[in-house]
Write a protein that binds this DNA or RNA. Structure first.
Lengths: 208, 208
DNA sequence: AGATTGTGAATGACCATTCATTCATTTTTT
DNA sequence: AAAAAATGAATGAATGGTCATTCACAATCT
C-alpha cells in the first residue's frame, strides 16, 4: 500500500510508462497489429505486469485515449481562457490541434486512426473525453450564435463535428505522408481557420 | 478460364456475391472482428470458395473498397455532367454523399470506418480509387479558382480533403447513432453545402 | 474423360491472458 | 537491532482458444 503515486496524474509511474509505450506501438502498427508483448518490451516491463495495471488490451487503448484527451482538453481550456475575441478562440482551437500534430504526432495518429479503428467498441465505453472535447467546440459556436457573430442557421452540434472532421482528415494527410508534405503545418492551420470562420460567420467582411 | 463473367462488372456473379456479403459483415462487425467463415456463410458459399476469388482476407476488403469507390465515382461523374453551375456541382457532391448514407448505409459505414481501419495496410496498396474520388473534388475547386468564383488563397488540395473530412465525420455521426439523430439527412446536406461554399467562395453575397 | 469449380474438415500459427514462482521491501517478533 | 515472517509487485513460460488458410476429395461442366 502506502504510496498512491506521487509524480503524475495519480496513477503511478509504471502505469504511465505503459501508456507511453502503448501510444508509440499503437501509432506505429495500429491497435490490432500491436502485440501486448511489444508494448511490454517498449515499457521495459514483463508481459504480465501490464495486467496488473489494465484489465486487457482494449482497456489499454481506452485508458490511453481518455488520458490524452483529458490533457488536450485541459490545455485547450487554459488557452481559451486567455483569449477574448471569439474568432481568435476558434483560431486557437485549430492552431492547437495542428501544433500537437507537430509536437506529438503519435498522439494525433492515435486520435486520427485508432479512434476510428476502435469506434465500434468505443461505442460501449461512451468515450466521455471525446465528447467533452467536442463540447468545448460546440460551446464556442453556441456563444457566437448568441452574440450574433455567427449565422443563425448554423447548428453548433453539426459544425463542431464538421470542424473536427476537417482537422482530423487533414491530420491524417500529414500523418500518412510522414511530413513530406507540400503544405506547411502553419499555413494549413491558417487557411483552415479562415475557411471555417468564413463558412459560419454572419458577415465575412466583418471578420476580425 | 472461359467465361469472364457476363452480368456485372466483368468478374462473375459469385465474386460479387462475396463482396456484397463482405460489405454487410464488415459494416456490422468491423474488419478485424469479421470472420471469413461468416462472410462465406452470408454469401452461401464454402469457406474455401472465397480463396478461389480472393488472395486473402485483406484482399477482400481492398477489392470491396475499390469496387464501391469505382461505382461512386461513376455516379458522381455522371451527375456532375448534367449540371452547369459550379456551386450546384459542389452541392451535388455533398448531396450524393448523404443520399448514399440513406440508400446504402453499409457502404458509407465501410468508407467511414474501414477506410481508416485499414489505412495502415491500404497505404501499400495506394488506394487508387479513393485518390480519384478526391481528384474529382479537387478539380471542381481548381475550376472554381480559375473562374474567379473561389478565393485565390484556397488550396484545392487541402480543401478537397477538408470537404471529405467533414462529410465523413458527419456520416460517422449518423452511422453510429443509427438514425436516431436529431438532424435530418436532407438538412445536414443543405447546411453543410452552404457552409462549405461560403467558406471558399470569393464573395459569399454573390452565391447563387 | 478431362477440366474446372466448389467443399468444409483439418491444420497450425498466432497471441492474449494466466498463474506459479521469485524476491525486494516492510512489518513483526525476540 | 537482528532475525523471522509476511507481503504483494513483478516476472515470463505455459496455456488455450481463435481463426485464416489449405488441400484432399466431390460435384459439375464441356
Amino acid at each position: 500500500m502506502a504510496k498512491v503515486a506521487a509524480n503524475n496524474g495519480e496513477k503511478g509511474e509504471k502505469y504511465h510508462r505503459i501508456l507511453a509505450a502503448a501510444q508509440k506501438i499503437f501509432a506505429q502498427n495500429g491497435f490490432h497489429n500491436s502485440k501486448v508483448a511489444q508494448i511490454a518490451k517498449e515499457a521495459n516491463v514483463a508481459d504480465g505486469t501490464i495486467y496488473l495495471y489494465f484489465h486487457n488490451k482494449d482497456d489499454i487503448l481506452i485508458s490511453l485515449f481518455e488520458d490524452r484527451m483529458r490533457m488536450l482538453i485541459d490545455v485547450l481550456r487554459k488557452e481559451l481562457a486567455t483569449i477574448d475575441s471569439l474568432a481568435d478562440k476558434i483560431r486557437a482551437v485549430i492552431r492547437l490541434h495542428f501544433r500537437l500534430l507537430r509536437e506529438d504526432p503519435d498522439l494525433i495518429e492515435i486520435i486520427t486512426i485508432e479512434l476510428r479503428q476502435s469506434t465500434m467498441f468505443m461505442k460501449e465505453y461512451q468515450n466521455q473525453q471525446f465528447r467533452s472535447y467536442l463540447q468545448v467546440l460546440g460551446d464556442l459556436l453556441k456563444e457566437g450564435k448568441d452574440q450574433g457573430l455567427i449565422r443563425q442557421d448554423v447548428s453548433p452540434g453539426l459544425m463542431k463535428r464538421a470542424l473536427f472532421g476537417m482537422m482530423d482528415e487533414i491530420s491524417l494527410l500529414f500523418v500518412l505522408s510522414h511530413k513530406q508534405n507540400k503544405y506547411s503545418i502553419e499555413n494549413v492551420s491558417e487557411e483552415l481557420s479562415e475557411f471555417f470562420l468564413r463558412g459560419i460567420w454572419h458577415d465575412a467582411s466583418e471578420l476580425p
